[in-house]
Deep mutational scan, measured.
Amino acid sequence: THFTSQQLQELEATFQRNHYPDMSTREEIAVWTNLTEARVRVWFKNRRAKWR
């Protein structure tokens, strides 16, 4: 999946605040970024792996 810079900005900003967002937070992010909750969940999983 290719993310727009706007989507990445929103995802990264949320990641800085919370590395493990809950389901409702992921659903909110999905609405803001026009992505599915599953895409958001996978992005956070991959981002945490990169962060370690």
Score class of each variant (00 low, 15 high):
Q16V: 08
F3S: 03
A49G: 06
F3D: 02
E12H: 03
K50D: 09
Y20G: 01
R52K: 13
P21T: 02
R26N: 02
N18C: 11
Q7M: 07
V31G: 10
R26H: 00
L11A: 01
F44A: 00
T4M: 04
N18H: 06
S5M: 13
H2A: 10
R41L: 07
F44C: 03
Q7W: 05
A38K: 13
E28Y: 09
L11N: 01
Y20S: 04
E37P: 08
T36M: 03
E27D: 06
E28H: 09
P21G: 02
Q16R: 10
E10T: 15
Q7V: 09
Q9H: 14
A49T: 07
R17D: 08
T33Y: 08
H19I: 05
S5C: 14
S5N: 10
E37F: 04
F44D: 00
N46L: 12
V31I: 14
R52Q: 14
E10G: 08
T1M: 12
D22C: 04
T1A: 12
R39K: 15
R47H: 02
V42L: 12
W51L: 09
D22S: 09
E37K: 03
R47C: 05
A49L: 08
T36Y: 02
T1D: 13
L11P: 01
T25C: 09
I29L: 12
N46S: 08
Q6Y: 14
A30D: 01
S24V: 10
F3W: 07
A49P: 01
A13C: 11
I29T: 02
K50G: 07
K50C: 09
E10Y: 15
F3Q: 02
T14A: 15
P21N: 01
R39L: 14
A38F: 13
R47A: 05
T14K: 08
A30V: 02
A49F: 08
F3G: 00
T36H: 04
R47L: 05
R41D: 07
L8A: 06
T14Q: 15
R41K: 08
W43E: 05
S5G: 08
T36S: 09
I29G: 01
Q9V: 11
K45G: 04
E28A: 14
R48Y: 04
H2C: 12
W32H: 14
E12I: 04
M23T: 09
A30T: 02
R39G: 10
E12W: 05
R17M: 12
Q16E: 10
E28R: 13
Q7F: 05
E28S: 09
V42C: 09
A13E: 11
W43R: 01
K50W: 08
R39N: 11
E27K: 15
R39V: 14
R47W: 06
A38V: 10
T4V: 02
I29N: 00
I29R: 00
T25Q: 15
W32Y: 14
V42Q: 15
E37Q: 06
T1Q: 11
A49D: 09
T25R: 09
Q6C: 11
M23I: 10
A38S: 12
R26K: 04
V31M: 12
K45S: 08
R52G: 07
Q16W: 11
A49V: 08
N46W: 15
V40N: 01
R26V: 09
L35P: 00
Q6K: 13
T25L: 11
E12R: 02
V31P: 00
R17I: 12
A38P: 10
K45N: 06
P21I: 03
N18V: 07
E12N: 06
E12C: 06
W51G: 06
R26W: 05
L35I: 06
T25I: 08
E12G: 01
L8Y: 07
F44G: 00
T25K: 08
W51P: 05
R52T: 09
K45Y: 10
A30C: 06
R17G: 07
R41C: 07
H19Y: 05
F15N: 01
N46A: 13
R39C: 09
F3K: 03
S24H: 13
F44T: 00
T4I: 03
R39D: 13
N34T: 05
L8S: 06
T36L: 04
P21R: 01
L8R: 09
N34V: 05
R48K: 03
F44E: 00
E27C: 11
Y20K: 04
Q9W: 14
R48N: 04
A30W: 04
A30L: 03
H2I: 10
V31C: 13
S24K: 14
M23Q: 12
L11M: 05
